[in-house]
Design a protein around this nucleic acid. Structure first.
Lengths: 336, 336
DNA sequence: TCAAAAGTGTTATCCTTACACCCATGT
DNA sequence: ACATGGGTGTAAGGATAACACTTTTGA
C-alpha cells in the first residue's frame, strides 16, 4: 500500500526523455440491493477519493497481473472477471501531474466481483456509482439534476457562434436525448465528456481546461474523483452497459442462486433503466441463460420464487448471448 | 523515420526501475478490389515486416496525436478515422526485447483510410491482410490451409491429458467451428491465440513460448510480423469485423460514390464471408445508410448500376446503424 | 443470344413488444 | 381481503432469410 503512495510522491525516479509512468486503475463493480456498486479508496481525509490504482512494476509478468496484485494489496479483494478498458494518456488531462512528472499513462481495467462484503482495507468502500453520475440513473424517473443540466447545456448552445450552433444541438441530442426520444443508457462516457468540455464538472477547472461555464456552475451534486478516474469510471460503466446485451456478464455479479426478479433488478441497476418483467423472464429463459435449482425462496415477499442458477454451459454453446434491454417498463416521468 | 529506428536500437536511454518504453502501432486499413489491405513497412530486406510504429514522445500532446505523427512521418499518410484497440504488454511476449530493454508496452490503434494509393515512403506497402491470416478468408470456399490446421489441432486435442481433453475440444469448436456450424468471422484474435499457444505460428517459437507443436509444424503459408504485430493486426481485424455490424464504419473505406455491389464486396472482404445480394441491398437501403447520387455507371459490366453516396446524416440520426452480416450466400465448400 | 450484373416481389419464420390476465403467499 | 411479487397466454408488428424471377447492358 505504501509503495503506491511513495512512487507517486517521488516521480524523480523517472528519468530520460522517453520515460513514462504507467498507472493501472481498476473499476471494480459489484451489485447490491442498493444498486450498482464501485470500489473507491480514500487513504485519508485530505486526499481525494480514487479508484484503486498503482504503478506498473517491472516484476509484474503481465499488465493484468500487475493490476490484480495492486488491487489485492490495496483492498484485499481477489478479482475474478477482468477486462482491459482503455489507455488514457492525453497530456491535457492530468495537467498538474504532467508538470511534475512527465506524462502519466493510465491503463483502465474493469473487474466484476460477486459479493460486496468489506475486506481488510479500511480505506476502500463500496459506493453506488450513481454517486458520481447521478444523471445516469433513470430507474424511477428522470433524475433530479437533469433539468439543471439541460438548462446549462441550452445556455452553451445559445451562446455558440452561428455556425457551431447546430453541431452543439446535435451533440446534445445524441448524448442526452430530446424529450421524445429514448434515453440511450450506453453513452455514459459521451455525456461525461460533454459535461467536462463545457466545464460543468469541477475537474475540468482543476485540470485547467478552458471551459465555457465558470467554475461555480459545476454540478456539485455529483462527487468527483482523483485525476481522470471519473472518466475511467464512465468508460467502465459504458462498457458494462453495452456488454450485458451481447455477453452473459451479469452473472459475474450474481450470487450462485437468485430469482428472476433479483436478476432483473441487477440488470436494471447497471443499465439505469427499468425493464418489462414478463418479457424479461421469457427472454432470459428462452436464451437458455439460466436453469432451475429446484429450490424456491419465500423471502422475497409475495408468492415464493424459484431459485435459478447460471447455466455455465451457455459460455461454450453460445458465448454471444446477452440480455438485451429494449423491453422498457412504462414509466411515469416528467418527460413525454 | 530515423528517430524510430534509433530509439529502438538504443534502449539504454531507458533507465530507472519504473521506466517503460511505450510504442504506438497502427493497423491501417483500406479496401481495394483485391480485398482488405493493410499497410506494412519493411525498412530493409533483413528486418522483418512490421506495422508502422514508433515510440510515444514527450512532445506528443495526446497518444492519438503521437500515432498520427509517426504514421505521417513513416508513411506519408494522413489518417482519418482512428480508434484505440488495446494495450499489449505481456512480458512473455516480446521476450527478447524485454531482456534488452525492460518492458515494452505497445498501444495498438486501428485507422481507416479511403484510398490505397502509394505515398512517398518506399518502405510502406499495402498487402491483403489475408497474407497474414489465410485461414480467415472464407469468401469463395474453405481456405486451403484449413484441413492442415484442423489436423494439427486435432493432434493437440488427442494428446491432451484426460481431464483437459474436453476443454480443448470446446475451444477448438468455439474458435474454428465444427463442420456443421457457421463460421464466426469475429473470432480472429481467439483463433490466432490458439495457434500461438499450440505453437503453429512461428513467432511462438521465436518468443520462446513453450509449445506443443515443434517449430517445424508452424504454418509457413502465412507471413509473420515483427514483435507482436500479428496479434495487433488480429485485434484490429476482429474489432473491425465486429464494428461494421453496429456502426457505419465501412463508409470510411469507400470512395465518395459507389455501387451497391462495390459496397457489398468491401463488406465481404472485411468479414471474409459472402453475402446474399438482394437482401444486402435492401438491408442497406432500408437502414437509410445511403442515398442516390442520380448518376449511374456502366463500368461494372452488365446492366449499369446506380451510384450511391453515404448519408452522413445517419451519424446523428442513428449512430448505431450498421450492416449486419447474417444473410450468407450459399457456398459450395467441402464442408456442408 | 448469352453472360453478367442490376434489381424486384413474395413468403415463411422468428423475435420483440405490448397488453391482459391468473397464481400463491404474508399480513 | 388485499397488497406484493410470481408467473402465463397471446397477438400485432417488424426484421430476417430464403426463394424465384425480371431487367438492362456489353460482347
Amino acid at each position: 500500500m505504501s509503495r503506491s503512495e511513495s512512487s507517486r510522491a517521488q516521480p524523480s525516479q523517472l528519468v530520460g526523455q522517453d520515460a513514462v509512468a504507467v498507472e493501472l486503475s481498476a473499476v471494480i463493480v459489484s451489485a447490491s440491493p442498493d444498486g450498482p456498486m464501485v470500489l473507491v479508496r480514500q487513504p485519508d481525509a485530505q486526499s481525494p477519493a480514487a479508484l484503486p490504482f498503482g504503478p506498473l512494476e517491472p516484476f509484474h509478468r503481465t499488465i493484468e497481473e500487475g493490476l490484480r496484485a495492486w488491487v489485492e494489496e490495496l483492498t484485499g479483494y481477489d478479482l475474478g472477471y477482468v477486462e482491459q478498458l482503455y489507455t488514457f494518456g492525453d497530456a491535457n488531462r492530468h495537467a498538474s501531474a504532467r508538470a511534475r512528472a512527465g506524462r502519466v499513462l493510465s491503463i483502465g481495467y474493469l473487474a466484476l466481483i460477486h459479493e460486496a462484503r468489506p475486506r481488510r482495507s479500511q480505506n476502500s468502500n463500496w459506493h453506488s456509482w450513481y454517486r458520481f453520475f447521478p444523471w445516469e440513473d433513470w430507474r424511477n424517473a428522470e433524475p433530479a439534476i437533469m433539468p439543471s443540466i439541460r438548462e446549462s447545456i441550452d445556455g452553451w448552445i445559445a451562446e455558440a457562434p452561428r455556425d457551431e450552433r447546430k453541431s452543439r444541438e446535435e451533440r446534445m441530442r445524441l448524448t442526452f436525448g430530446l424529450p421524445d426520444e429514448r434515453w440511450n443508457e450506453e453513452l455514459v462516457l459521451e455525456r461525461y465528456e460533454l459535461l467536462y468540455e463545457i466545464g460543468l464538472v469541477p475537474e475540468a477547472h482543476r485540470d485547467g481546461a478552458s471551459c465555457w461555464a465558470p467554475r461555480e456552475a459545476a454540478i456539485m451534486a455529483a462527487d468527483s474523483l482523483h485525476a481522470d478516474h471519473r472518466r475511467i469510471l464512465a468508460t467502465g460503466i459504458s462498457r458494462l452497459r453495452g456488454k450485458i446485451k451481447y455477453r452473459p456478464v451479469v452473472f459475474e455479479l450474481m450470487p450462485p442462486r437468485f430469482t428472476f426478479l433479483q436478476l432483473q433488478r441487477t440488470v436494471e441497476a447497471l443499465a439505469g433503466v427499468e425493464l418489462h418483467k414478463p418479457n424479461f423472464r421469457r427472454l432470459v429463459e428462452h436464451q437458455g441463460l439460466v436453469e432451475e435449482t429446484g429450490a424456491v425462496t419465500s423471502k422475497t415477499g409475495g408468492r415464493p420464487a424459484r431459485l435459478l442458477r447460471f447455466r455455465r454451459e451457455i459460455l461454450v454453446e453460445r458465448p454471444a448471448s446477452g440480455i438485451g434491454l429494449p423491453p422498457l417498463r412504462q414509466r411515469s416521468t416528467s418527460r413525454r
